[in-house]
């Protein structure tokens, strides 16, 4: 469950990917073109013809996304400079009590030694993937966490949360933490209560990013930037840990 350790794994061939996984992404309009980093990353490309046509409830039956709005985020990953302005903005907007490993979004850093003696540096922003098939929701004994049918965002009902941390353990992305202020589990919710509810169109991390790394929007809106990036023919897109089958709504690409 520790993403940092997963990054140390070796590359492997596409054979290692179950055809089942490939099929799942095809249903979302994305075809798998490669497997990297021990299967934790997939390279995807959009397949406009391959929209969902399957009985799986998380996947649209007729090529439609199932929620009234279907929010997602795409990261133009190679533009991230690790400045962490997004983290500051998130903490401030959503009143995240930092410490005890608490974050709603964070930046991962990978350093690879180069022959020149220097290091190659890569940054990767991560947050809750607002999964289409969220393990956290499945395991919660009190239904304190659920997928909001209006937005597709995985939200918390603090009053129902008993703090058992089962969802924390179930989340393949390490995206949840126990909030000592709320006495409940807390997580990224795309600023649904702080900004979207106030009519804002963007999350705090998107607005604060100087490098336009994060693109947030409604995947159902064909005029949105995220839709266009995600469905641009031959745009290579990947998700983190596709093998876990949670079907993330946070995508990655190089711009």
């Amino acid at each position: 469950m520790d993403i940092k350790n997963l990054e140390k794994e070796q590359n492997e061939g596409i054979e290692s990917l179950p055809s089942d996984e490939r099929r799942k992404f095809l249903q979302m309009g994305l075809a798998v073109t490669g497997v990297f980093l021990g299967g934790t990353l997939l390279s995807l490309t959009s397949v406009s013809t391959a929209k969902g046509r399957n009985a799986d409830p998380a996947i649209p039956a007729d090529g439609q996304y199932p929620y009234t709005k279907h929010y997602g985020m795409i990261m133009r990953q190679n533009h991230c400079v690790g400045c962490e302005k997004c983290m500051d903005a998130c903490v401030e907007t959503n009143n995240v009590q930092i410490g005890h490993g608490a974050w709603r979004t964070t930046i991962q850093e990978r350093l690879t030694p180069l022959d020149s003696g220097r290091e190659k540096r890569e940054f990767r922003p991560i947050l809750c993937n607002q999964c289409n098939r969220p393990p956290c929701v499945r395991v919660c004994p009190t239904k304190a966490t659920y997928k909001d049918p209006e937005t597709g965002i995985i939200v918390m009902d603090d009053k129902k949360c008993i703090g058992c941390k089962t969802c924390m353990a179930a989340c393949p992305y390490n995206a949840r933490y126990y909030s000592h202020a709320k006495h409940a589990i807390d997580k990224c919710n795309f600023c649904i209560d702080t900004l979207l509810a106030a009519g804002e169109k963007q999350t705090a991390c998107v607005t604060s990013c100087p490098a336009h790394v994060r693109v947030f929007g409604d995947l159902k809106d064909t005029s949105s930037e995220i839709y266009k990036l995600l469905h641009k023919p031959d745009n290579k897109i990947w998700v983190i840990r596709p093998d876990c089958g949670a079907l993330p709504n946070v995508f990655y690409m190089n711009a």
Binding site: G82, C83, E84
Partner: peptide, 9 residues
């Protein structure tokens, strides 16, 4: 970018 940008870390 990250030849010069070393990030907060």
């Amino acid at each position: 970018c990250n030849t010069c940008h070393i990030g907060r870390k």
